[in-house]
Design a binder for these strands. Structure first.
Lengths: 321, 321
DNA sequence: CTACCTTCTGAAACGCGTTCGAGGTCAAGC
DNA sequence: GCTTGACCTCGAACGCGTTTCAGAAGGTAG
């Protein structure tokens, strides 16, 4: 492999001058530049990216920790992160973690070892305080409300919107309300927000048997539906954690030949549109962009982005021909 | 920053012995190991990942070129790639390219500069021959049938399934068939396959005005639907390029108060299930796994994975209570 | 007792580009 | 004539871990 030293030797100039040519810097005479360039072209030389990173002490890699590649929350967030990364010449490295603490710790260690310039946790198994300890090794951003943990964060401000959702249900006279969540309340800020909102609107916590956690896929949701049905829990409505998951619920009710209760979706997915569900748009693309900006700027501080309850368009009348 | 030389100096042993301790290699006496480890712990030293990569001449990074982060094709493919990467300790670097040749060339140059150990093109704007030329710098894998270009590939074998789809339509007596595609036929192998299948089944190419290209999102599909409607093209059926896009089409017809023609989806998405559409599952997770395996093994050869036409489950009868 | 193999350790080369400080040249300004 | 400041170039240090090879010490089979 030819390297910068070879170019210097063959061209008769010094390494530093070659470096200046490679990086299109000033203070190289046209004549020298041409001579060096010719040798570079002749040997078909390109500088080694890893050596450059080592020398510069920077990789332009940002690690993004996520549990699922195929979940809309992560897909949308990632989309925003990529968009922002692209426009600043950073690269996004995907770090799968199934909320696994050991794995996440490894990624934090990788940050310490300078494998990444910054880390974004779209979700995490480790406690925030553990993540916070690693901030001395580089910027770390989370994508949830960190409350009293002083860690940079960009997240969807969900509470008010969950209240809107419950208000909607209350106005319609619904009282027995199921809730689907991906992870239980202490660890999941999202779930916590739903519980709090329920409390604010109805004055009570949701009944434990109506809350189903560990629901991430439509199949999980279908199982949750099976549970509601076989336990004979008569529900007026269900706040689902995703339009797609609402589809899973619907599947369960249909298989039991029952009309599903009133469903509210989340994530503003197409399936929700098709079913004509109210849904909650958390603007995750925005959140991703902000998370990335925090990560590379190294700023501290939290950025909350308001979610929004979207009511379905009225289903159009179809003229049967 | 403390480095391996500091540890050597302070412990009184040589760099190579410290390196052996760091990498848990043999030929270090217990006593020496303990002494060195103590210094490491005391200085809270970790080796620099970039320096290690430089030294080893390997980064364990695989670049994945993709045009959209949020498209189901890429999401599913990426899911497979990540899964495979994870189990082999490789990392996945996302390289957005909107079929932009300049950008893709840059990524190829990055490969040459050793920024990645291998590249996977889930899609590409450059011709395959251009990609092929860069294989001397590292493994490159594409995710489509490369036909006569001798480049490693893992892809969904779609032709037979598209024939199945058109046969289905033919059996139902449909003749005027719309086709949605993301990119036009010469560059897109997918589109090519649809055209070929149409020809095989019906004996003719699809009418040009019935083929709508540049459709990647449901909104694009909606526009395609608007076109069909405003041009008064009476269609019997439409082969869409995605269940979600079928939703966009449906939206167009509904807004014009018309019943949409018979739709066939692709990608096996939830929206398709909800609409009760036949769909085509291309098994992209599988494809992603295979693509990754090809990339890191450096093997040549093509892996085709058969797609599958899935007929909808019969819509269950709902007992109105 | 020799030949040879292990185990353990170190020096030095290797992978490779960036950057700082210093030195030299030449022209413009005072 | 002298100072000042571009402009150009170089050497050397710096970022940092891995690996090869040589060599010392100790053991053992023949």
């Amino acid at each position: 492999m030819t390297n910068i030293r070879d170019i210097a030797q063959l061209s008769g100039y010094s390494i530093s001058t070659v470096s200046r040519v490679l990086n299109h810097q000033n203070y190289v005479s046209d004549k020298t530049r041409a001579a060096i360039q010719q040798v570079i072209d002749q040997l078909d030389y390109v500088p080694n990216a890893v050596a450059r990173d080592l020398s510069r002490g920077k990789t332009f890699n940002v690690g993004v920790v996520l549990p699922h590649a195929d979940h809309p929350y992560f897909t949308q967030l990632l989309h925003g992160i990529m968009q922002a990364a692209f426009s600043t010449n950073y690269r996004v490295v995907l770090l799968p973690s199934k909320y696994n603490a050991t794995l996440e710790l490894q990624y934090l260690e990788d940050l310490r070892q300078k494998a990444y310039d910054a880390l974004i946790f779209t979700s995490h198994g480790l406690p925030l305080t553990a993540l916070n300890r690693y901030r001395r090794y580089g910027p770390i951003v989370v994508c949830e409300n960190p409350h009293d943990c002083p860690i940079p964060a960009a997240y969807a401000e969900r509470l008010a919107t969950y209240q809107d959702a419950f208000e909607l249900l209350k106005q319609r006279g619904y009282r027995h309300i199921g809730i689907l969540a991906s992870r239980p309340a202490p660890v999941s800020a999202t779930c916590q927000a739903m519980v709090t909102a329920h409390h604010t609107v109805f004055g009570t916590d949701p009944a434990p048997e109506l809350m189903r956690t560990d629901v991430t896929t439509p199949s999980d949701a279908q199982r949750a539906g099976d549970y509601y049905i076989t336990q004979h829990l008569k529900l007026d409505a269900i706040l689902t954690n995703g339009d797609d998951n609402a589809v899973g619920l619907r599947r369960a009710y249909h298989q039991h030949h029952q009309t599903p209760p009133f469903l509210i979706g989340q994530e503003h997915q197409l399936s929700g549109e098709v079913l004509g569900l109210p849904t909650i748009d958390h603007h995750f693309v925005e959140v991703g962009i902000k998370a990335f900006d925090l990560a590379v700027s190294g700023q501290t501080g939290n950025i909350a982005i308001a979610s929004q309850l979207l009511l379905p368009d009225p289903q159009p009348q179809i003229k049967r021909v």
